[in-house]
Design a protein around this nucleic acid. Structure first.
Lengths: 350, 350
DNA sequence: CTGTTAGCGCTTTCAG
DNA sequence: CTGAAAGCGCTAACAG
């Protein structure tokens, strides 16, 4: 700060070296430099050595943007998420990152807090910069988005996109929910569902599964749905609502783990014991699910795998091997303590 | 799929429209198109309208890579992390994303599993594509990395970089650890430290704080350090080691929350009660810390804020307002149940 | 207000 | 094996 600059006049902010600089210094053409840098075979050992040495000395690093302009390949994929909060998204990103890395791809990450305009903005920002995109747009209105991804290959994850339009990868929330209700129905008849936001794709699927299975399993059962927003606070609020019901239901199936966890604390605060007084189950199997007490019974979604699969699909699309347009991952029931079943599984191993 | 193509011969795989296409269709020059697209003032209403219409019709989206090549601005910042696993990193990314968004910047995310070569690779991949970088390189060997970031402005977060070299932002692990030891020393004299990996910057700082404060507080105290790797499993292992000690220590200060949580389960499995038999504390205050039972006493690091601050620094650097080269964020003691202190704070609110 | 043109840095035919 | 030159798509002087 107070120390005077040591140098004279030479621009210290050394402009990064370019192919031209290297070519000049090495006394060769830019073509040769390019060949060396990209490891092409047709270069004489001497030329190669000379260039490599200059590259080293000038600390030359290829300018990625220029390269991708010339080659039309950027080694970049765009990832567009509605949110970055919580275990679900970090696991997803982890899976995507792992798969991308193994394909030599880098990630352009963007979150648009559920806002369609921000999404459009992000998609524009990605155009001409990424080779393909992975989009998670669970908002039902997201179909509008189609207008933008005209040219960039895209795979949608858990998004309400018309099948056939783009490849879609989804968690089978419908059948997952049915499986959970089936499990609960073995001991309960009064099962209430804490649903996710009304405009959310996953929320819809899970609620639909709940309703259908309940109708199929419990004769004369009347579905009861408390609306939430996937947050812990919503779960706690739902717990209060449910506890006040009479007759009080004996089981709660929340549309995601965070709400289930909210229910857990809500009921506990109200003096109810889970699972003795009331059973609680969730959906997703986020890491936290096995840490809370009682440990949460839930539907396990292999989120990390979902991320990997998304990248796999995208690379398939990019390679023009048109993959099956739609695929579902089936979640798996994980029985822990919160549902009062006999066979609690061990703490989740990883 | 089975439906025949409607069009004749025109290539349906519509090559994305370019400025040239738009200019031709609108009967104007590319310059005008550029002006309209970038919202410059000096364009006649008619021209503007005509161009906008064609843009719409051709679904023209500017090619970002080309633009950034021409303007030397990419609206992109690179984020290089050692890992993507766990609450710490997702919170950090969230903070970075939020701040970046407010500066109209997008994120190029890369993780290199602590491997210096992967890091170098990632940095190369970012060159010429990002305007600046945020690097988290807690590995002590990471100093080597300096060789690469010559030209791209960078801010380091919690990294062992020689001060003065680049802006560095850090959590004050040293004083945080001292504060924690001070807290424990009020009731304990036999305090053991479960340290992080030997080659890790944060691990070093925290251990150093532990040693210094212990020496200062507890006369004749002998520091006892069990080495871990920041994972839950390491914490559990440490618990076994510690439980076998005689005399058994009465307090454990783990270098991060995950290890502390591992200790919790470890001690519990061994039939020890926390905090009655032994106190356990952590560091970071990850979201999970308030969910485990007993809730974890820890040093709160505002991770999200750390992310925001990193971006703020970077933008300052980019704007050439050279910011103070080094800054620390001081963590704050959060007393919960696991240390057996009198005043448990309420569950963390967010 | 509008068009022409010269690059940005790199890759890639195409000749030699 | 090597070099010259033509772009990739866009922006930004610089004339009109």
């Amino acid at each position: 700060m107070s120390r005077a600059r040591t140098s004279r006049s030479a621009p210290r902010v050394a402009r990064p070296a370019t192919v031209v600089d290297v070519a000049r210094e090495a006394g060769v053409s830019v073509a040769s430099v390019s060949r060396v840098v990209n490891g092409h075979a047709n270069v004489s050992p001497e030329t190669r050595a000379r260039v490599e040495q200059v590259v080293e000395r000038l600390r030359y690093v290829p300018h990625t943007a220029a390269r991708s302009l010339a080659t039309k390949r950027s080694q970049l994929i765009g990832v567009l998420l509605p949110d970055l909060h919580g275990d679900f998204f970090s696991e997803l990103i982890r899976g995507i990152d792992a798969a991308a890395r193994s394909h030599q791809l880098h990630l352009l990450l963007s979150s648009s807090h559920g806002d369609a305009d921000e999404m459009a903005e992000a998609i524009r920002a990605m155009h001409g910069r990424v080779e393909g995109m992975i989009i998670l747009a669970p908002h039902l209105e997201a179909a509008r988005i189609r207008a933008f991804h005209t040219t960039t290959p895209t795979v949608f994850v858990n998004s309400p996109v018309a099948p056939g339009t783009s490849p879609v990868l989804a968690i089978d929330g419908y059948n997952g929910a049915r499986a959970m209700v089936r499990h609960l129905a073995a001991r309960h008849t009064a099962i209430v569902h804490v649903a996710g936001p009304d405009d959310n794709f996953d929320a819809h699927e899970r609620e639909r599964g709940y309703r259908d299975e309940l109708a199929a399993r419990v004769r004369g059962a009347r579905p009861h749905v408390v609306r939430g927003d996937f947050s812990e606070a919503a779960g706690r609020a739902a717990a209060r609502t449910i506890a006040a019901l009479s007759p009080r239901p004996t089981a709660v199936f929340a549309a995601n783990d965070m709400m289930a966890i909210g229910c857990l604390s809500g009921f506990t605060e109200l003096g109810l014991s889970v699972p003795r007084d009331i059973a609680v189950t969730g959906f997703d199997d986020i890491p936290l699910a096995s840490y809370v007490r009682p440990a949460l019974t839930t539907m396990r979604v292999e989120i990390y795998e979902l991320g990997r699969a998304a990248v796999a699909r995208l690379t398939a699309v990019l390679a023009d091997k048109r993959p099956a347009p739609i695929t579902s991952l089936t979640p798996e029931l994980v029985v822990r303590e919160s549902c009062g079943a006999d066979q609690p599984s061990p703490r989740r191993s990883r």
